[in-house]
């Protein structure tokens, strides 16, 4: 057991796997703890001093965020 960062999104709890910033946009990688293959990527935006998670706007952006994750984690392996 260890301390794990979590958030609640769409009434579901997600574990925060990583945060990666690409061109000043921070992407957050979230995995459902209890569902084998469910994960999603969101963007963190700042509005009136409050941070929000918002959706990915295109498949290209989604692929870019996924590839950044791969590059980060495979280079550290």
């Amino acid at each position: 057991m260890s301390d794990v960062k979590c958030i609640t999104l769409n009434n579901q709890e997600y574990l925060i796997v990583d945060e990666i910033t690409i061109n000043n946009v921070t992407y957050i990688y979230l995995v459902r703890e209890d569902v084998e293959d469910e994960f999603l990527i969101q963007k963190i935006i700042l509005e009136q001093d409050q941070e929000y998670l918002t959706n990915i706007s295109s498949i290209e952006e989604y692929n870019k965020a996924l590839i950044a994750f791969k590059e980060k984690h495979t280079s550290n392996a």
Partner: peptide, 20 residues
């Protein structure tokens, strides 16, 4: 995952720390 990432609504980013 793409569809979930694409369709999700904006929500406050409130991180909680839990033992897991």
């Amino acid at each position: 995952s793409y569809m979930r990432s694409y369709r999700s609504q904006k929500e406050p980013y409130n991180v909680q720390i839990k033992k897991k």
